[in-house]
Design a protein around this nucleic acid. Structure first.
Lengths: 328, 328
DNA sequence: CTGAAAGCGCTTACAG
DNA sequence: CTGAAAGCGCTTACAG
């Protein structure tokens, strides 16, 4: 373990001079050369803890994710990592395993580690969240959900869903099963549903029924056949790609041809939806890009710069083969 | 920011006493009570940096992953996280984006952050890797690949592949395309191939051809039709599930019925392989469990305990519907 | 441009 | 059981 004192001694200068050299202060040419050489030779690198202890801040950014094994989370993380690296920050990923409690815990733990800021990939924002965020007093970026008190980057769930709804309707579907999730998740449960409802409201003669399932593929596999029996829709409009994946599997199990016998749409644009057979039409979000933006925004916050309260990320309807064109 | 001095003052004792209280040293009953109360009231929690600066070690464990968006990596990470949390260590995830260079960089960065140990989800182990690992002098666990100098946890690629090969042969397949990857990846490129070859060697009348592709689904989608044209195997034995996923997509594009016209096997047991149509027969590895073990092992190393050089993780052949039973 | 000194928040011998 | 002091490796005014 080689320290700043060693460098100072070897270079024949004071510690403070080495420190100044390290931090871009004014150092004479000759001194600079000497220090440079010694550092080069020794492979010295400053002790982060000592630095942080003085500076009372770090270059670490914490990101709390609800789960590590989801396409959306992974891609967002990749985007955050990419950007943070470019900005010279170190990313710390903290997994909450879909436990709201652990999410809160992680906020405190990260604060305790003196991260410069926190990115929260949010699902639900409860009172305890707000309480924790208020207490820790650290710059925060919310991703995926919004809250009036904090800065956020959200996906354009409402509009994307509206547009996807129009697409479904334009293709002649009238008997529709909408397969959503809990409304406690405002982005996915509420906004996607509302966007879709807006599209439906503009079209007469629709028979739309709303159902609720979980985020798990398995649950979707199970509920779809039941709905088919009772309601017999021509299409399932699913609130996430995982739900759509389950619907597709269910269709195959029932021996139904997709899209002829049953159409399906997803939401999210997970990579896997282009690999399935048939490919699934979906509203794609650019998660990686969103991660980029979230990271950039947070660093602005950390630097005390101005930032608008909410940023919107891009989306695009990806048309594939899972929706029957009933008009033809 | 409340410090140990504040607590000491409020409790009317010396800093050293508070420190002793915190670290389980001997403290009188009355003193203990007082300190306890003050800490409770203030919500004090010690500054990690100051602690680490003194102790010269931390409770952080670094994990370097080649990518964040792979089933294997995510699951392993979840397992590591789970175990580390239980053992009171903090996980730092470091993404190398499939760049060997960045992997090396990350080793140094983590060392610089004074992590107590490093888990490396390895793909290739080059001389630079070894050099870096030697330099940083930190306990290391390799996952997925092995090296005589370091402790590792490996998947049983060889045996799993042997068994899967036997299964394929038992089902009557003789004209077989083996779709592997670069041999620089010893685990996936070499061991899986060798295991399969062993099975083939025990069966006469086989026409097996070996092909190489990348880890990308797209490349597999492209190469499979070419192979079909030239060779026309009854089955593709794929070195990873992603490759199998590509083969399945290619089959659908070619209008082939799987498994009747073309059979497919995968490797890894990714969740998605049970959702596809048909479900893909695959050699499943228990990644999460492997992560658990790797974490536990590393902590043993950190604590200076004995540990056998290499641990093997479990596997299981998962039979689904993608292999035609030609014997019937 | 350069150096001596103080201090960041802890822990650890060492006395008592 | 308890406290005063030194020290971990840095940075930051302050002099010169």
């Amino acid at each position: 373990m080689i320290t700043i004192s060693d460098i100072a001694k070897l270079a024949g200068v004071a510690k403070s001079t080495v420190s100044r050299y390290l931090n871009g202060g004014s150092v004479g040419e000759a001194t600079r050369k000497k220090i440079e050489r010694v550092i080069e030779e020794t492979g010295y690198s400053p002790n982060k803890f000592a630095q942080s202890l003085k500076a009372k801040k770090t270059n670490m950014i914490g990101t709390i994710v609800p789960r590590l094994d989801s396409f959306a989370a992974s891609q967002t993380l990749i985007g955050i990592d990419e950007q943070l690296r470019a900005l010279n920050y170190q990313l710390i990923i903290s997994n909450s395993s879909q436990s709201l409690e652990r999410e809160i815990e992680n906020i405190y733990t990260l604060a305790n580690q003196k991260v410069a800021g926190i990115i929260l990939l949010a699902t639900e924002i409860t009172e305890s969240h707000i309480e924790a965020l208020r207490k820790v007093q650290i710059p925060i970026m919310l991703v995926g959900q919004q809250h009036e008190e904090y800065h956020s980057l959200i996906h354009n769930d409402y509009e994307a869903s509206y547009e996807l709804g129009k697409y479904v309707l334009e293709n002649g579907h009238r008997r529709i099963a909408y397969l959503g999730v809990t409304e406690r998740d405002v982005a996915v449960g509420v906004n996607r549903k509302k966007g879709f409802q807006k599209a439906v409201a503009q079209q007469s003669g629709c028979d739309v029924r709303y159902f609720e399932t979980s985020f798990k593929i398995e649950d979707s596999i199970n509920i779809v056949p039941e709905i088919m029996k009772d309601f017999h829709p021509s299409i399932f409009v699913c609130a996430t790609d995982n739900i759509a994946l389950g619907a597709l599997k269910a269709a195959h199990i029932m021996g139904l041809n997709v899209p002829k016998d049953l159409s399906i749409t997803g939401f999210g644009g997970y990579d896997i939806t282009k690999i399935t057979f048939p490919g699934i039409t979906s509203a794609k979000f650019y998660y990686k890009e969103a991660g980029n933006v979230a990271a950039k925004n947070l660093v602005q916050l950390v630097n005390g710069e101005e930032l608008k309260k909410v940023s919107l990320s891009r989306y695009k309807i990806i048309e594939r083969e899972s929706v029957d064109k009933m008009m033809d």
